[in-house]
Write a protein that binds this DNA or RNA. Sequence first.
DNA 1: TCTGATTAAATCGCGCGCGATTAAAAAGCA
DNA 2: TGCTTTTTAATCGCGCGCGATTTAATCAGA
Lengths: 141, 141
Amino acid sequence: MSQLTLPDMICFALYSANHAMQRVYQPLLAPLGLTYPQFLVLMALWEEDGRRVTDLGRALGLESNTLTPLLKRMEAQGLVARARDEQDERQVRVTLSEKGAGLKAEAGHISRCIFDACGLEVERLTALRDQITALRDRLAG
Amino acid sequence: MSQLTLPDMICFALYSANHAMQRVYQPLLAPLGLTYPQFLVLMALWEEDGRRVTDLGRALGLESNTLTPLLKRMEAQGLVARARDEQDERQVRVTLSEKGAGLKAEAGHISRCIFDACGLEVERLTALRDQITALRDRLAG
DNA sequence: TCTGATTAAATCGCGCGCGATTAAAAAGCA
DNA sequence: TGCTTTTTAATCGCGCGCGATTTAATCAGA
């Protein structure tokens, strides 16, 4: 069998599609002063506020060595607050500020732009998402 | 309609699947002293050696601000050589060293490990790859 | 109660990825 | 020929992402 080339590889498809996605998000998030990972953190907090760093890490698939500096930058921008848990001082709870919570209003518009850029009907996009998620879980498992 | 959560979003599926993929590659590449993007560059050069930085950028979807430092690191490791083109001194040709070319022998084993980790039959994996690639092209287009 | 193990964040260093800019070579054109 | 425009890499700064380690709090067990 002849050697695989870049376009043949599922890994490169994921790699390049992920970059393409982030490039679509960038001009939508820049006016809000957000990076793409910061937007994902906001998503997680809009769903459930006051999570611990570990919880955010589990939701996003990231470790504290990535999240701590990222959350500090978000705190510096007044998007979230970070505070040690009263019961367990090892843990840090991350809470949305008014500004951070307010940005949720923009999320709908952004999601619609992304959906349009995907150029697929909802059913096909959902099916594709589920296949990619299932692949991720097998890779991580 | 209620707000989308992280697992609902195709963007997060791509983001997390891409990370999961790189985490599978990492222990396979580390013994060769390669990072994942460096492996992709080698893939591109195994397919066609002596490409210009621009050509590699087009193949990988990257700019010179990413590639130049990456290629310098690969040159420092003796994987490739970088040389200005004789005809057009603006361009830099990247050529595989013997060491860089030799690593191709390991690629088959790595690809097989990745395929196994995906846990899908070839037909399904190919179909998924094509859908992801098509999505990427719509996002980039 | 004290001591060692475990857990949660934080810290450090390094390699991407990219927006913005710069430097230099080549191409286009009066 | 000279001058401008375009093309190609390189440079710079910053934000991730992560392997490795550290610090501090909590837990478990004698």
